[in-house]
Amino acid sequence: MATGGRRGAAAAPLLVAVAALLLGAAGHLYPGEVCPGMDIRNNLTRLHELENCSVIEGHLQILLMFKTRPEDFRDLSFPKLIMITDYLLLFRVYGLESLKDLFPNLTVIRGSRLFFNYALVIFEMVHLKELGLYNLMNITRGSVRIEKNNELCYLATIDWSRILDSVEDNYIVLNKDDNEECGDICPGTAKGKTNCPATVINGQFVERCWTHSHCQKVCPTICKSHGCTAEGLCCHSECLGNCSQPDDPTKCVACRNFYLDGRCVETCPPPYYHFQDWRCVNFSFCQDLHHKCKNSRRQGCHQYVIHNNKCIPECPSGYTMNSSNLLCTPCLGPCPKVCHLLEGEKTIDSVTSAQELRGCTVINGSLIINIRGGNNLAAELEANLGLIEEISGYLKIRRSYALVSLSFFRKLRLIRGETLEIGNYSFYALDNQNLRQLWDWSKHNLTITQGKLFFHYNPKLCLSEIHKMEEVSGTKGRQERNDIALKTNGDQASCENELLKFSYIRTSFDKI
């Protein structure tokens, strides 16, 4: 039985969820670079991206490699990797027998973001014989899940209580170790020597080791999670996991709180800001991140802002960003909400898709409305799209047979046209069989910064309504002859009103 693990408890099935942008060198404390989270699957090609990484700022997932063999891993080693800020997950990587050479110096898994409450997941690794993470000293947050690894031993010899604050939620089941077939031998045991430290858990006094050649490092209890030197002297209180010299914040392997210019500090002093819960960055760093993602459509890219001495992905609820200094300031009234469309555009074809934009005031991208039916549609669209004030790209209304009016965009005031449909149009209306009105132009103002209007096959939309939009939106004169079809717009509506004058002759039985 794995020490510190839980057996036999019912657990939810383990679901495996399925960018080499360097964020800056980590400095003297770390020998390499800070790398983003990685999802490495199918083959070993991307694994080489770990070569210079000291910190993975995010998670590391290595999974679904069915053609790899043990010899493929023999020359692979990433000794610079010290810390993973989120979680480490391995799933069905064939041929991998140990992690001792792959990650010989991995010391800390912070667990800032977890995989279903777990910071370390080893699942269905069919050839893994031992973990071998002999320098792993601290899992700051989260638990361990090690399950269905039929060859995995050296679990009962690990004292997880020396690595985690609590072992109650560890789930370590259905491994070879369960069948008591392992016969784990710690260093020196074969020669009758006791080389590794022994600890007591559940009444068992057991030597602690990761492999037959690597003991588990056990520091004096007084050192807590700070770690200790090879001689057993406690590291500085700002260290986490390990250090090369005692009581020196510049000799830590990793930091308990924050890293700044080669030393570990309790908090980031001005003019620095907390970033990702582990390091200090200056304003320029946060500003660069903001600008890199301002026009990016890459998933996970955030326009970072500053709030409460932190550089964070977005302002919290009730705050909006001051564009001059990136500071989050309290909103006066309802907060603006910028919604970034991942692929640059979004099609609204149902109430469900409209709900995804609920509360958005600025759309960074283009909207395509293609709704053919739905219950209580006008009210639903207004509830979900009615706060949109600005669209950076274009607005396209296409084959939306259920629409009679666009009044559900009740606050839309600006279409920038930074991206144009077919390279020309910022407003595009095609084949809307029941569209009769755009907006009530006596109450609604709309500016279209650039781009043209396109109207074709809107049989109940009168040309007068379209011409009014040209005047109000500032697009009059931009359109070419064929942009607004004269014969297919309003051709099934009563669009022309003329005053009919009647004269009559009164007659009676005795007068003409």
Results as ranks from 00 to 15, higher is better:
98 S>I: 02
325 N>A: 05
64 L>R: 01
300 G>V: 10
292 K>P: 04
62 I>M: 04
196 C>W: 00
325 N>R: 10
164 L>K: 14
255 C>N: 02
143 S>F: 11
331 C>S: 04
125 M>S: 06
237 S>R: 12
277 D>M: 07
102 L>H: 00
146 I>T: 01
116 F>S: 01
81 L>P: 00
297 R>L: 08
300 G>M: 07
145 R>K: 07
55 V>W: 08
142 G>I: 01
117 N>C: 01
38 M>F: 01
276 Q>L: 11
311 C>Y: 00
275 F>D: 01
88 L>Q: 01
117 N>A: 04
235 C>W: 05
103 F>N: 00
43 N>F: 13
282 N>M: 14
237 S>G: 10
154 Y>I: 04
45 T>Q: 13
122 I>D: 00
315 C>N: 02
53 C>W: 00
273 Y>V: 13
135 N>M: 07
263 R>Q: 07
107 T>A: 05
257 N>E: 07
218 V>N: 02
208 R>F: 15
48 H>S: 12
209 C>M: 02
95 G>V: 02
232 G>D: 15
206 V>S: 15
332 L>E: 13
70 P>F: 05
284 S>V: 05
331 C>W: 12
193 K>A: 10
130 E>C: 05
95 G>L: 01
34 V>Q: 04
188 G>N: 04
117 N>Q: 04
307 H>F: 14
241 G>K: 04
179 N>H: 09
33 E>A: 12
34 V>N: 02
46 R>M: 03
168 E>S: 15
68 T>Q: 11
41 R>M: 04
109 I>W: 00
286 C>A: 14
251 K>F: 08
184 D>L: 05
215 C>E: 09
238 E>D: 04
278 W>S: 07
30 Y>D: 08
97 E>Y: 12
38 M>C: 02
328 C>K: 02
267 T>S: 07
54 S>Q: 13
215 C>F: 05
189 T>Q: 12
136 L>C: 01
58 G>K: 02
88 L>V: 07
201 I>T: 06
322 N>S: 08
153 C>I: 00
238 E>K: 06
226 H>T: 10
304 Y>G: 03
118 Y>N: 01
275 F>M: 06
158 I>A: 04
60 L>R: 00
207 E>Y: 14
304 Y>N: 06
135 N>I: 02
98 S>C: 05
147 E>V: 02
295 N>Q: 03
68 T>I: 00
80 K>R: 10
231 E>G: 14
219 C>L: 02
141 R>S: 01
105 N>Q: 10
229 T>R: 08
258 F>V: 11
102 L>P: 00
205 F>A: 09
336 P>F: 07
44 L>E: 09
334 P>R: 15
63 L>H: 01
289 L>S: 07
146 I>Q: 04
176 K>L: 03
203 G>Y: 07
197 P>L: 04
156 A>E: 04
229 T>Q: 09
118 Y>A: 03
119 A>N: 02
177 D>I: 06
174 L>H: 15
175 N>V: 04
333 G>K: 04
264 C>D: 04
75 D>A: 07
142 G>F: 00
283 F>N: 14
41 R>F: 00
336 P>A: 06
245 Q>I: 13
62 I>C: 00
322 N>G: 07
192 G>L: 12
176 K>P: 03
77 S>R: 12
334 P>Q: 04
251 K>C: 07
48 H>Y: 13
185 I>C: 13
164 L>V: 15
248 D>S: 09
214 H>T: 05
121 V>L: 01
302 H>C: 08
49 E>T: 14
276 Q>V: 10
142 G>A: 01
293 C>P: 01
314 E>K: 07
332 L>W: 13
119 A>K: 00
324 S>H: 11
42 N>C: 01
199 T>G: 10
53 C>G: 04
85 T>Y: 04
35 C>L: 00
238 E>G: 05
166 S>I: 12
200 V>A: 09
152 L>T: 02
185 I>Y: 15
204 Q>P: 09
34 V>E: 02
271 P>S: 12
104 P>A: 03
87 Y>L: 00
184 D>N: 13
61 Q>K: 15
43 N>T: 10
302 H>P: 10
130 E>V: 05
294 K>W: 10
261 D>S: 12
129 K>F: 04
185 I>T: 08
194 T>F: 10
41 R>V: 00
40 I>M: 08
311 C>V: 14
65 M>G: 03
77 S>T: 14
116 F>M: 01
283 F>W: 06
332 L>T: 03
83 M>I: 15
107 T>C: 08
79 P>N: 06
320 T>L: 08
206 V>K: 08
235 C>T: 00
124 E>I: 04
252 C>K: 05
74 R>L: 02
270 P>S: 11
189 T>A: 09
303 Q>T: 15
131 L>G: 01
62 I>H: 03
238 E>R: 07
193 K>S: 06
105 N>T: 06
158 I>M: 03
168 E>D: 01
122 I>Y: 00
254 A>L: 09
323 S>A: 06
62 I>R: 01
37 G>N: 09
91 F>P: 00
104 P>L: 01
56 I>L: 04
97 E>T: 13
268 C>W: 03
230 A>I: 13
178 D>Q: 12
265 V>G: 02
50 L>Y: 03
97 E>D: 05
104 P>G: 03
302 H>Q: 14
284 S>T: 06
149 N>W: 00
66 F>Q: 01
43 N>K: 15
318 G>S: 09
143 S>T: 10
203 G>N: 09
320 T>M: 08
104 P>D: 04
270 P>Q: 12
317 S>K: 04
309 N>V: 06
196 C>K: 06
